Amino acid sequence: MLAMKPADLDLRRSVAYAAPQWIGLVAASAGLSVVLSAAGFPAALLLGPMLAAIGFGVSGAAIRVPKAGFLAAQALIGCLVAHAVNASIVRTLMADGILMLAVVGVTVLASASVGWLLTRIRLLPGTTAAWGSSPGAAAAMVAMAEEYGADPRLVAFMQYLRVACVALSASIVARLFVGDAPAGLPAPVGAPEPGAVLATLAVAALGAWLGRRLNIPSGAMIGPLVIGATLHATGQASMSLPDWLLALAYAAVGWTVGLRFTRATVRATLYALPGVLAATLGLIALCGVWAFGLTFVLPIDLLTAILATSPGGLDSVAIIAVGSRADVSFVLAVQTLRLLVVIITGPLVAKWISRSLG
Rank of each mutant, 00 (worst) to 15 (best):
A208D: 15
A204R: 13
G195Y: 11
A229V: 06
S240G: 11
A191P: 08
G207I: 12
A199Y: 11
A196L: 05
A183S: 09
P182A: 08
E193N: 13
P217G: 09
D243F: 02
T200H: 10
A247W: 04
G223A: 05
G228W: 07
G235E: 06
A208L: 03
C165T: 13
A233T: 12
V173A: 02
A187T: 13
A174I: 14
N215T: 07
A187R: 15
G223D: 00
D243N: 05
A183Q: 01
L248N: 08
P186T: 00
A202I: 01
H232K: 14
V197L: 10
A196Y: 08
A252C: 09
A233Q: 09
A170E: 00
P224N: 09
L201F: 11
G207Q: 03
G254T: 00
S218R: 05
V203L: 03
F177D: 10
L210H: 11
T234M: 14
L198K: 15
G235D: 03
S238C: 09
A181G: 13
M239D: 08
A205H: 01
L245S: 14
I216T: 03
A208F: 13
A204F: 02
T230A: 13
R212G: 12
L198F: 02
L225W: 04
A167C: 10
I216D: 10
I227K: 10
G207H: 12
G219N: 03
G228R: 01
P192N: 11
V253K: 04
D180H: 08
W244R: 13
L206S: 12
T230W: 11
L210S: 08
I222S: 01
A181Q: 10
A170S: 15
G207E: 04
Y250V: 05
P242K: 04
L210R: 04
S240V: 08
V203D: 05
L241T: 11
A202D: 07
G207R: 01
A251W: 03
L168W: 04
A191F: 03
A167F: 05
S169N: 14
L231N: 05
T230H: 15
V253M: 08
H232N: 15
S238T: 06
R213W: 08
A247C: 14
G207P: 03
D243C: 11
W209T: 02
A247M: 03
